[in-house]
Design a protein around this nucleic acid. Structure first.
Lengths: 266, 266
DNA sequence: CGTGCCGTTGAACTTGGTCAAACGGTGTGG
DNA sequence: CCACACCGTTTGACCAAGTTCAACGGCACG
């Protein structure tokens, strides 16, 4: 159940058997399930315990008065929710499941004890939240300066690598339980624009996306279009295959694809 | 020198005299100065030690290939740079001074020792980075879903409160060493748009901004326009005066200002 | 006194948003 | 089994916010 978490942590702070057992002990027999599109908490609620995502996707979002919303963070299996909320007294945002969700609560007291005993676990959690911060910075860059096409492409890249790092990708294929509306809410775009953009990426042969499964068909080109640099995710050696693939120079046996006919830049 | 830091931390994790001395000891006689607009590091550099901002403003930014840039985080006096970079091996972004800057380096080893001895300091630093994460989320919301006017207004609100929390504001007046170009780079806008927007805010009587000094003339209205909720900054009781002011109902002796004639919403 | 940066203004242009309607799969009830 | 409703996706036409390009003014600085 915790494999995605362990696989991810192995990128940077590999844990020993003892430490894994200690971490797993925190969540024994406490797994919970939730249907898709259900709130975990809403703005103004008291702070809830931390959660580890076991299966499915979730997100933090901000609800605007006029009904629109902005997703500010995505959680995949192995991600930890609420690490950075321990000091607040009220939630300043909401959170909901994207797909059917399975997660475990973690009491802060128990975690403190474990962290005290196993410094590597503290390090691992700190590392995880520092990567989360790096992702936040990339989202800001993406929303602030990239075109709709680049924003969407960038998110697909991010999600492929995050899935791969959690051991959830098959080659360049991964599960994508978000709909186009969610995608727009994450990238600050309307669903109409998301739809047109996705079709553009599809027709350009960059990716396929059917029935909640995405296959990145041309990772090097998608990476280039999105100006995506996987470095910030600190993948370690886990995804070397993907990284080397994404930086592959265009095949010299055929002419490089001309991106200029597509509204991909700026 | 460390007053902005202590004033800020007093909002949530007040430190005793011993702890303050220990923190101050980390930076003794190591203060450094830098002119405005100088890089502290650039993308690809090795990770540098953490820094405490003593005076002036700095930022993290992302440089795009075509010359545009996106500021992803602002640092005011009392802010700590680089807490979340300790695990990476290379910087995934750049950082530069905005105004003339005075800062101190902090070696991680020394800090670890101090944190070991004074758990409250660890808590204080964790709290600080959790507020930084909340600010990141608000930036994402702002860039994703707010209009140019709202984005700028929101940033002015944020900066007023952050200045106040560090003991650097005088009423609703604070120093703003950024230029309009920087403001655009922080909000994902062109300088032309920033200029027009600032003039709009000025002519609506919401703020004044001359010679690097901003005075928020109508905080309640600016707050409303920006949909700004100060809660996420976890101000504690430090800025109660400001907070109560910002939520003041419009003066009933005169008609409420009509925002509809201004392109402020959406 | 020139030079350069920053702020300001105008005009043409582009991207993406809004509105509205049609399409297609899926689950439900008759 | 079919009719229907519902939800997410798709498409078109129009609109608006913000960008780009270009030029000009003021102020600081060498």
């Amino acid at each position: 159940m915790l494999n995605p978490l362990f696989t991810k942590l192995d990128c940077k702070i590999p844990l020993g058997a003892e430490e894994r057992t200690a971490l797993a002990g925190l969540i024994q027999s406490k797994a919970r399930r939730l249907p898709a599109r259900q709130d975990l908490y809403v703005e103004g609620d008291a702070i809830s315990p931390m959660r580890i995502i076991l299966d499915g996707w979730a997100c933090r979002y901000d609800q605007l008065a006029d009904g629109r919303r902005q997703i500010v963070e995505l959680f995949l299996p192995g991600d930890i929710m609420g690490q950075d909320c321990q000091f607040a007294d009220r939630q300043d945002h909401s959170a909901c499941s994207i797909s059917t969700l399975s997660y475990a609560l973690i009491s802060r007291n128990e975690l403190d004890a474990v962290v005290q005993q196993f410094p590597a676990i503290r390090q691992a959690l700190l590392w995880d939240s520092s990567v989360a911060a790096a992702i936040h910075r990339q989202w800001i860059r993406s929303l602030g300066r990239l075109s709709a096409t680049q924003r969407i492409a960038h998110l697909f890249c991010e999600l492929l690598y995050r899935s791969a790092r959690a051991g959830l990708a098959r080659g360049t294929t991964f599960d994508m339980p978000m709909g186009q509306r969610d995608l727009g809410d994450a990238r600050g775009l309307s669903t109409v624009q998301v739809n047109r953009t996705v079709q553009l990426l599809r027709s350009a042969g960059l990716l396929e996306w059917r029935r909640r499964v995405v296959e990145i068909a041309d990772l090097p080109r998608l990476t280039r279009i999105a100006m995506f640099r996987p470095h910030y995710l600190e993948l370690g050696s886990t995804c070397e295959l993907l990284v080397s693939q994404s930086s592959t120079q265009p095949d010299s046996t055929r002419p490089p694809p001309d991106d200029r006919d597509l509204p991909l830049f700026r």
